[in-house]
Write a protein that binds this DNA or RNA. Structure first.
Lengths: 349, 349
DNA sequence: TGACAGATTTAGAACGTTCCAAATAATCTG
DNA sequence: CAGATTATTTGGAACGTTCTAAATCTGTCA
């Protein structure tokens, strides 16, 4: 069933020209006569020729494989799926193809995946690193001249371009909003201690409290896994302190959903009895009940930004690392208690 | 910054051996003396050599690029993200790397993406085709001997291996369940008319009605986009007929969520005033309020199955197309009204 | 010690493309 | 129509690997 591979030489022979001419046609060169071009193209179609990019790359000094590698740490999180879609969008229209891999937070797998991508000669890499990735892991990549864009999670000391959202400002805005609603004991829940994102969001939270001249209480800052389960856990611990909080800024939406679950299981209704704010604005945030007040970061937009930056870097061969911070905005819905009028009345038609 | 590429010859020179020996080392051949192997490996690490798979593939007749192409029609739908994770899982542990692309239901983009993948010499392809894909589109692929596995959506007349879920049985079970709860006017909502999946699920719905000796009413079968918005639209139309339904079997979970939205906006609570059943069991189904009764198809499992089948095909060079139908099961939660006792009482602690 | 077997190593020809330099064909120019 | 351009076409040498066949080395045995 599997035929012999048909090569540029086969089609040259069939079309009665030289392989050089065929190559020229393949590259859409204007040097070749229209008539021969058409004939060659006809033969190409007829024989079902498929271009061997590997062979071509071999010859071209500035290897343009046309592949962009994308590495994400958790594809099951819709945030990253959306990010990938954003990247794919830009990358495809620029004529590249995307090579997406999921590390599932496994750093060994990440190493493996990146090695594999390099072997295949990717022209650039966009990465949302797995937990525990260090600057040293990226060093060999950039050293070899591979354009790299770091996104979502920053890595201390990495000398690469980054596209990050403004975590500090977002978290600060979320906290301010809760303050404005009258809350005074506001918790910060969820997130792993050792990640840069967590640090930044926590800093934003503290900024807002400080600005309101409220002494931040350490017992109201509770870290946990950045997942729904982590949220349940965090709110559980938060409610046991001497003076429990009346609202919480959460590390991300998953945690916020978990916090809502936890509140309900103790007989409290989020948005009515307790203010909850998330971060990310995943798709479900809008449609959950109560709809989640959250900081919107537009994952697709972030992906597109990252892709654009990478392409720019590829095309210019620019060695200068650029840092883009994408702005975020607070989307007020029901879980914080602000838009409450829209929610409880829904029962009767 | 970008250094000269270091090749097998460079490392041969540095290690004082021939390129052939280096090649042997690279392939982990036992023919090479342990001492030289170690020396070569040391030099490899030292010079930061990266293997050029393109060049290698050029030489190897049975081109083992080690890339598996995965094409999905909508990555923003978490079903497909999960599917990709399942594929990646199997594929990575088999030493392959995944090349994931999203077509966004755009058939031109799909053509483009597949062409690109072929140029890069993928060893196999797993595809959930975009709407409108025809058997003729897959013909050239299989004709060239490329192993292909079709999943999620079938294509009439395509002579390739498939991994599909048992749509008919699932839909039938969902319908039966609603009948058992006492519903007699059950609608079938959502899905595009011209897709095989829609046909199958609709057939299952009719099977169940027939078995219960209920004459299916055509006005209760309403197709729409297979999205949340489509669901809102479909339920809107369904409620305007002379004798409106009291429950609905939905094309997929997204539609089901839309139906819930639509019901609420007309003052009806899904699970209490109207039975809703979805299909797919996406992650949000479990945690939505009310939790969605749905047909579970295990997207990751499907992905793993598809990947296994593809690998089997690659390794055996087997020309025989195989059709796997994965079984599904109804997961009863609250939206159908069956498990209702758990839901409304939640208010008080 | 010379020949033989096994263990290692190696030169050089592929693989399918691009690119350079040079050849050939076609068209002008006066 | 010769010479000069310009438009097309073309050999053949790369590119970085693998593979085959053959070369070299190392002991061993008679």
């Amino acid at each position: 069933m599997s035929k012999e591979r048909v090569t540029v030489i086969d089609i040259a022979r069939a079309a009665g020209v030289s392989k050089s001419t065929v190559s020229l046609v393949l590259q859409g060169s204007h040097l070749v006569n229209a008539a021969t071009r058409d004939k060659v193209n006809a033969v190409i179609r007829e024989l079902g020729y498929v271009y061997n990019r590997g062979a071509a790359n071999l010859r071209q000094s500035r290897a343009k494989s046309g592949i962009i590698g994308v590495v994400v740490n958790d594809l099951t999180n819709s945030f990253f799926a959306e990010l990938a879609v954003g990247v794919d969008d830009v990358v495809q229209s620029a004529g590249y193809v995307q090579f997406l891999s999921n590390t599932g937070e496994n750093i060994d797998r990440q190493r493996q995946v990146i090695a594999s991508m390099r072997e295949h000669g990717i022209s650039g890499l966009i990465i949302s690193p797995a937990r525990g990735t260090e600057a040293a892991d990226l060093k060999p990549l950039t050293a070899s001249g591979l354009p790299v864009v770091l996104t979502v999670r920053n890595i201390a000391g990495a000398k690469v371009s980054t596209v990050m959202s403004d975590n500090r400002a977002g978290s600060s805005a979320a906290t301010e909003h809760l303050l404005k609603l009258g809350h005074r004991r506001i918790a910060y829940l969820g997130g792993f201690d050792d990640t840069a994102v967590h640090e930044e969001r926590l800093a934003g939270y503290r900024d807002a409290l400080q600005a309101a001249e409220i002494e931040p209480s350490e017992e109201l800052v509770i870290s946990s896994a950045p997942s729904r389960a982590g949220g349940v856990d965090a709110i559980g611990r938060a409610m046991t302190v001497a003076a429990p909080p009346t609202a919480a800024v959460c590390f991300n939406d998953a945690v916020a959903f978990g916090v809502c679950d936890g509140l309900r299981s103790r007989g409290m209704e989020p948005g009515r009895d307790f203010g909850v704010v998330g971060f990310d604005d995943v798709i479900e945030a809008k449609t959950a009940v109560p709809a989640l007040t959250t900081v919107s970061v537009d994952p697709q937009g972030t992906g597109r930004r990252a892709a654009q930056l990478l392409l720019k870097q590829i095309n210019s061969g620019s060695p200068a690392a650029e840092a883009i911070i994408t702005s975020v905005r607070l989307v007020v819905r029901q879980s914080c208690g602000a838009g409450s009028s829209a929610y409880p009345e829904r029962k009767a038609s």
